[in-house]
Design a protein around this nucleic acid. Sequence first.
DNA 1: GCATTGACGAAGG
DNA 2: CCCTTCGCCAATG
Length: 116
Amino acid sequence: MNKLKKNNEYSFFEDVFEVVRQIPKGRVSSYGAIAAYLGTKMSARMVGWAMNSSHKVKPLVPAQRVVNRNGMLTGKNHFETVTQMEELLKKDGIEIKNDTVQNFDGLFWDPSKNLL
DNA sequence: GCATTGACGAAGG
DNA sequence: CCCTTCGCCAATG
């Protein structure tokens, strides 16, 4: 499957990982925002799909900081444990209520605005 | 090679 | 205001 990857063309997966790693502690971002930063704003799904491999890449990607546009921890089910995601976010100082990031609007981190 | 699914999002009813 | 439908792109069956 691998090995014959176009050396010039890195999957946008790595781009997603890189952006997610840039998310500051205590902040969260959304799939759509990351997708938009990568240019594929219409395909936020692809970002989520990329996160599917986030657990197997070298520098673990803080996927827990990436939630949907509603601030809901939709991907918690894909973590080692369903509580892992909210626990990690709580450690970052983010309050989680009912699997949803509180004050999501205030904690939201837009890569296109901050990373640029 | 076509059909289904997926950690989303915006629009329509 | 809540729920349903469509669109996107890629991977898997």
